[in-house]
């Protein structure tokens, strides 16, 4: 059965439990980072951070502070462009498991040429793939394939305190997403589900993507 995530940003408190849990579960070492005038750290996805919470602040039309949080990760597209591009060079470098819909970067990504790597990276509408210089692999969120295979939720979902993240069967998750959207619109009339028809990781955004992150949604 195809799986899906709902990430309801209107419930996220940016506690970053998901960001850290992802590192811990995947045994990813820490980066040396700097304070650059933002809580968002590391500043971007990288081979050691397959999930990060992005922070965006602004004043709304009435002068109220708005602080949006965006736990960013691979969307596991239903028709992953990255796979189409990679398939032209190294079949099997990127695979999509049809049953669950999990999109995986495999060890074969090491066989991609630098040009291919750039092509795959540029093709992603969400700016997700990262190149690991040490292993020469392309890397990204694997939806905790090991856990999902064992009937466990991805570790980020498990860790989330407020129910901002929901994981399960695609149809059920989409149903939940639509209900949430209806509720959320009472407070945030411009709220929408980002690219729900095309991805397995569906974000509920309270306002336009320019108030989250430029790649928060494609449409």
């Amino acid at each position: 059965m195809p799986k899906a995530f709902l990430i309801d940003t209107t419930r996220c408190t940016a506690c970053r439990g998901c960001q850290v849990a992802c590192k811990e579960w995947h045994d990813l070492p820490a980066n040396s980072t700097k304070q650059r005038g933002s809580h968002q750290n590391p500043p971007d996805l990288n081979p050691r951070n397959l999930k990060i919470v992005r922070f965006h602040e602004h004043l709304d039309a009435r002068g109220n502070v708005v602080w949006n949080f965006f736990p960013d990760q691979c969307r596991h597209c239903l028709t992953p462009i990255c796979k189409d591009v990679a398939d032209m060079a190294v079949p099997g470098a990127i695979v999509r498991e049809p049953e669950t819909g999990i999109v995986l970067f495999t060890e074969k990504t090491a066989e991609l040429s630098p040009e291919d790597v750039r092509a795959v990276t540029d093709a992603c509408p969400y700016n997700i793939p990262r190149y690991n210089e040490e292993t020469r692999h392309l890397v990204k969120c694997d939806m905790c394939v090991d856990r999902v295979s064992a009937g466990l939720p991805p570790v980020c979902v498990k860790t989330c305190p407020t129910g901002a993240m929901v994981f399960g069967e695609r149809e059920e998750v989409l149903e939940t997403a639509r209900k949430r959207l209806e509720q959320v619109r009472q407070q945030y009339p411009k709220a929408y589900l980002a690219d729900a028809e095309d991805v397995s990781v569906v974000y509920l955004l309270a306002e336009g993507k320019e108030y989250y992150y430029e790649y928060a949604s494609f449409m």
Binding site: G17, C18, P161
Partner: peptide, 9 residues
């Protein structure tokens, strides 16, 4: 089952 960043670490 939930944890924050510190608990997750």
């Amino acid at each position: 089952g939930a944890l924050c960043a510190k608990g997750a670490a």
